[in-house]
């Protein structure tokens, strides 16, 4: 464990907690893509199957449970909470995310570290996480609504990406056999798509703040 990875895990967790608190506090999820949140929950469920079989550390186990619980809590809020679900932009959140699930699963069948169920699902979760933000990006392009996409959420999501890339550079430099090509290449693609999301977020945020200026 290095400081970059710890910071990356903390900012990743904070981004999920900040979003959950925002949705729960305002009882609104307008502007949030349920599909992206479902894909994130699927990423954690597919990746943390080894929760009960391989014990790596207390930290690792606790964080896996917290990631699964918090991402499912967001999906539960948006799907079932009587007040929140009314504010879901169902007609705008139309990205066909099943193609993302199918495509990344096929890729995981081809590109994996070992052709075992656990490794295929792990690679699937890595590829899926890279593209999971796409429904949110499309929804943001369509709605321009950043009410619930707080600046903190976007900041922590970006910090998570930055710290993980620093973590891989650090591990590559300090560990003789650090070769995690699947995680590194997919993580770089994920960071690129995040940068695109950040660009649309910044544009929308600027337009909204212009709109809100006193006439």
């Amino acid at each position: 464990m290095n400081i970059f990875r710890l910071a990356g895990d903390m900012t990743h967790l904070l981004s999920i907690i900040v979003l959950l608190l925002k949705i729960y506090a305002t009882k609104s999820c307008s502007g949030i893509s349920l599909k992206t949140q479902e894909l994130y929950a699927l990423v954690f469920l597919a990746r943390y199957l080894d929760l009960f079989t391989d014990f790596i550390s207390v930290y690792n186990t606790i964080m896996k449970v917290v990631f699964i619980a918090s991402s499912l809590a967001i999906v539960w809020c948006m799907r079932l909470h009587p007040l929140v679900k009314r504010s879901y932009d169902k007609e705008l959140d139309t990205f066909r995310h099943y193609f993302l699930i199918g495509g990344t699963f096929v890729l995981a069948l081809v590109l994996n570290e070992k052709f075992t169920l656990q490794e295929i699902l792990w690679a699937f979760s890595i590829y899926l996480e890279a593209v999971a933000i796409l429904p949110q990006l499309v929804l943001l392009q369509r709605s321009g609504n950043v009410d619930n996409l707080t600046g903190q959420y976007v900041f922590f999501l970006g910090a998570y990406r930055a710290f993980y890339i620093l973590n891989w550079i650090y591990r590559y430099l300090t560990e003789p056999r650090f070769t995690r090509w699947i995680a590194c290449v997919s993580g770089i693609v994920q960071t690129g798509i995040y940068a695109d999301f950040f660009y649309y977020y910044f544009i929308s945020w600027k337009n909204n703040s212009k709109l809100k200026l006193p006439a």
Binding site: N60, K64, R180
Partner: peptide, 10 residues
């Protein structure tokens, strides 16, 4: 055969 690395990253 090469055992895949245990995935210690979250």
């Amino acid at each position: 055969d090469k055992q895949p690395e245990t995935h210690d990253e979250l």
